[in-house]
């Protein structure tokens, strides 16, 4: 259940920014979650519902952009989509790949009043 820790981190960062911006309420929190980040969307939404939040964040909707994973083969430089850590390069069939996208855990934006 590391999603609870992740949620607490999200709420801390958002609250810090919202206070700096003199926001009255936060409507939406937009985040990027990579397919291979090891974070489960449903667990994250569940943790978001269960967390006690300040007045500022109480009605905030969590919008998750799922970022697909992409790899570059270190042997032949071929770029391809992956859905796990042990994907084979479709060109040279090697396993030494650099996963350059799909591990994101990032707050993109917040919508505030």
């Amino acid at each position: 259940m590391h999603e609870l820790s992740i949620t607490m981190n999200i709420l801390n960062i958002v609250e810090e920014n919202a206070i700096d911006l003199n926001a009255k309420t936060v409507h939406e929190i937009e985040i990027d979650i990579g397919e291979l980040s090891g974070v489960d969307d449903d667990a994250l939404q569940f943790a978001m519902q269960c967390t006690v939040k300040s007045e500022l964040l109480n009605h905030a909707l969590l919008v998750i952009n799922k970022i697909p994973a992409k790899a570059r083969c270190k042997t032949c430089n071929h770029e391809f989509d992956v859905s796990d850590y042990y994907a084979e390069c479709p060109e040279c069939h090697g396993f030494d790949n650099d996963i350059y996208q799909g591990k994101e855990l990032k707050i993109k934006s917040i919508t505030i009043d």
Partner: peptide, 11 residues
């Protein structure tokens, strides 16, 4: 409503 770009790593 204002959309504020944050771009911060959660961890």
């Amino acid at each position: 409503s204002r959309v504020i770009k944050i771009e911060r790593d959660i961890l």
